[in-house]
Amino acid sequence: MTSRTTPRSPGTAARRPVGTVTRGTTNPNRLRRMDRWIAAAHGAELRRVADPVAVDLGYGAAPWTAVELLARLRSVAPHARVVGVEIDPARVAAARPYERDGLVFRHGGFEVPLAGRPSLIRAANVLRQYDEGEVAGVWERLCARLAPADPASGSRGGLLVEGTCDEIGRRHVWVALGPEGPRTVTFATRLGSLDRPSDLAERLPKALIHRNVSGEPVHAFLRDFDRAWAAAAPYASYGARQRWMRAVRDLTADWPVVDGPVRWRQGEVTVAWGALAPLG
């Protein structure tokens, strides 16, 4: 989708997309774990609004992830709509035949070319090519485009989900952000593919991947997760799921895990952002 923001010269049209073209690698079902988490965590918010719009930002060379996102969101919010946004005009043109009720494709970048504010922005594998120091600025720009919170109605506002996964969607790590900024970090995996929880380190989003070093919170978390996983080895006789659930339960003694057994059974664990945020 996009790489680094390029400076605009005087007279450049304000509508010029922000960013540059990247590889656009994509595969069907690659983002299924992220989508299912979004449906569970954000479905009530999507149902609360009259016209829930989700943005698949940087869907890549083929539109599969946007098509799948629409189906998964409509399972929990039947009136949801999806806008696929890509900075490469050729990719937008190639996706247009897949448009249908509730699904359109637009040329654009981090400016998110919508008239209103979306209830969801999903940016998967978009910031991988960025420098770590650029991430905060991109987050701020995207969070500013989200639907605002409305305390009177109990709404927390829109959700930005930004993270990374492998090519076939076995391992994911993503950060969830609201209009106010980062909220949580979720680790999700196909448990049969996992030797130890720290295997997920290679899929940390750009904000965290270079912080997996001694002295940083995310490194301490993965170290403790590996220790809990080793201690839960007797549960392996009941299957990898039971071992994962036991390890996560042990983690809750020292780390602010914010979800519960229903999500743990899916091979997930979600931790408050503040516990893993980079130092300094």
Rank of each mutant, 00 (worst) to 15 (best):
134 E>V: 12
134 E>S: 13
135 V>M: 15
135 V>C: 13
135 V>T: 07
135 V>W: 08
136 A>S: 11
137 G>S: 15
137 G>L: 08
138 V>Y: 06
139 W>H: 12
139 W>Q: 15
139 W>P: 01
141 R>G: 10
141 R>T: 12
142 L>D: 00
142 L>Y: 08
143 C>H: 04
143 C>E: 11
143 C>W: 00
145 R>F: 03
146 L>C: 10
146 L>A: 11
147 A>S: 10
147 A>Q: 08
148 P>M: 01
148 P>G: 00
149 A>S: 13
149 A>L: 04
150 D>A: 04
151 P>F: 06
151 P>S: 10
152 A>E: 13
153 S>M: 09
154 G>Y: 01
155 S>F: 04
156 R>I: 13
157 G>H: 05
157 G>N: 05
157 G>W: 02
157 G>R: 09
158 G>N: 11
158 G>K: 06
159 L>G: 11
160 L>A: 07
160 L>K: 07
161 V>W: 01
161 V>R: 06
161 V>Q: 05
162 E>M: 14
162 E>Y: 15
162 E>V: 13
163 G>R: 08
163 G>H: 10
163 G>I: 02
164 T>C: 09
164 T>R: 10
164 T>N: 15
164 T>P: 07
164 T>D: 11
164 T>M: 15
164 T>G: 07
165 C>V: 05
165 C>A: 06
165 C>L: 15
165 C>P: 00
166 D>Y: 05
166 D>E: 05
167 E>L: 08
167 E>P: 15
168 I>T: 13
168 I>L: 09
169 G>P: 05
169 G>W: 03
170 R>A: 03
170 R>Q: 11
171 R>E: 13
172 H>M: 06
174 W>L: 01
174 W>G: 04
175 V>W: 05
175 V>R: 09
175 V>N: 07
175 V>M: 10
176 A>V: 03
176 A>M: 00
177 L>E: 00
177 L>K: 03
177 L>M: 05
178 G>D: 06
179 P>V: 14
179 P>T: 14
179 P>Y: 10
181 G>H: 13
181 G>V: 02
181 G>R: 15
182 P>Y: 01
182 P>D: 02
182 P>K: 11
182 P>R: 11
183 R>W: 13
183 R>D: 01
183 R>E: 10
184 T>W: 14
184 T>M: 10
185 V>R: 11
185 V>G: 04
185 V>L: 11
185 V>Q: 03
186 T>A: 02
187 F>P: 00
187 F>M: 11
187 F>Q: 00
188 A>V: 01
188 A>I: 01
189 T>D: 10
189 T>V: 11
191 L>R: 04
191 L>Y: 05
191 L>N: 07
191 L>S: 01
191 L>I: 02
192 G>R: 14
192 G>E: 04
193 S>V: 14
194 L>D: 09
194 L>A: 02
195 D>E: 15
195 D>Y: 13
196 R>T: 15
196 R>P: 08
197 P>H: 07
197 P>G: 02
198 S>P: 04
198 S>I: 02
198 S>V: 05
199 D>F: 08
199 D>M: 07
199 D>G: 12
200 L>N: 03
200 L>I: 01
200 L>C: 15
200 L>F: 04
200 L>P: 05
